[in-house]
Design a binder for these strands. Structure first.
Lengths: 224, 224
DNA sequence: TGTACATCAGTGAACGCGCGTTCACTGATGTAC
DNA sequence: TGTACATCAGTGAACGCGCGTTCACTGATGTAC
């Protein structure tokens, strides 16, 4: 069980750089690494398919020859890992931002959940890679990693239990995991079945969170 | 919105037939079709990867030459569709069996949910294809299809609302969809992250269903 | 201030591979006469 | 009962493709002297 690096991610543009690329100046070779990841992410969004991330197509999108990729990534897997890793950080970042300044534990929990759903749906293909894909796409040693913001969620659950907001359930890990599964279920089904005649998304999210909250708090009479 | 065919599926053996295959007798050409699907499913389970289902590897597993596949399937997509379609039927069948003979609507609902989770986890790679994969793998016109047993679930929810077992929620579609999402969330996360240090599976399932049930029934004081 | 040179960023061509698909075919077998 | 033949199940060889990866290389650029 490891941490994901606590870097502050910048949401990258999905733009495919125009082809005539200017060669990095000496000492600035690392620049290409970022350009590669940007291009990979752009391709991911564009094609919606992780398997479309070929060394050649990425190199082409960056405006560079395929062997150049190998200066920065050991092989294709290593590159896909890096792409997934970035998404992981973005999701964490989005949730941290959403809970910033909120004090009430349950408010923080739902805000986190809504941010999770919102961000994941806005970045569906990236979410696919990190949460719905085969474990191959996950960097080794990260497969058993905590989900984005999991520790913070557990803290909030613990606080909600302490404050009596969550009743009849005393295991914060179990409660947090259940919440994660509900939120993931909503997110991943909407992503996997975009053509299904869903009820309005907001209604769906509200309903599910409300039912779960009601179940955790001991019934509707306890609701705000 | 279309129905899946109401055929009674037989759970296929995942065995890869031994190589020296006996040619089908005249008029029995359809036999190969089933052998192909069996072999494809076997490969799917074995490799855990839909992209490993190549015409060549399937032909090899059946003990037949690649062009033979085209006698029964228009192209690779068509074949993958057929594989997914079969899984769809199996899942439906498993749930119908699990609710057989049960009368109480809520008992039926949870039995259906547990059967869904149980069957999907026992056939993880197949579940991946039909519920977690890209819509490409889903036969055209089936992408907006009802999930296995959805209508029956909605019926049971309606009955549970009528009997007062589900309170404060009057839209059976919304409730059924929420239930589906919860159950799918549990299933798909367990499949996608097999190495995560989960709480015991049964505990997780029990907890989530209990919380959701409590939320739907209006609090723990209403529980059995 | 000038220059040789080590280093760095990146390239062009090629490798072997497995893939989906097509083509013209083969040889067994049931059936019409 | 015998046989010619249409049909059926399946084949062998080849196509063109995109892929990951490797190799020896080029040419710009900063720097030591």
């Amino acid at each position: 069980m490891r941490r994901w690096p606590e870097i502050v991610p910048s949401i990258p543009s999905s733009s495919t750089p125009s082809h005539p690329r200017v060669r990095a100046r000496r000492g600035e070779g690392e620049r290409l690494r970022e350009e590669i990841l940007d291009a990979a992410e752009g391709l991911l969004i564009e094609t919606g398919d992780e398997s479309a991330l070929s060394i050649r197509s990425i190199a082409d999108a960056v405006g560079v020859s395929p062997p150049s990729i190998y200066r920065h990534f050991a092989d294709r897997n290593d590159l896909v890992y890096a792409v997934a890793d970035r998404q992981w950080c973005h999701l964490t970042f989005a949730m941290d931002r959403a809970t910033d300044g909120l004090d009430d534990p349950w408010t923080r929990i739902t805000a986190r959940g809504r941010a999770y759903i919102g961000f994941a749906l806005a970045n569906a293909e990236q979410y696919r890679v990190i949460m719905m894909g085969r474990p191959d796409a996950i960097p080794p040693g990260k497969a058993d990693d905590l989900p984005p913001g999991y520790e913070h969620l557990v803290e909030d659950v613990r606080a909600a239990i302490a404050s009596g907001r969550i009743r009849h359930h005393d295991d914060p890990i179990l409660v947090a995991t259940g919440l994660w599964m509900l939120v993931h279920g909503i997110t991943s089904l909407l992503i996997a079945k975009p053509d299904f005649p869903w009820p309005p998304r907001d209604q769906l999210v509200d309903h599910a969170l409300e039912v779960y909250e009601s179940g955790l708090s001991g019934g509707p009479e306890n609701r705000l």
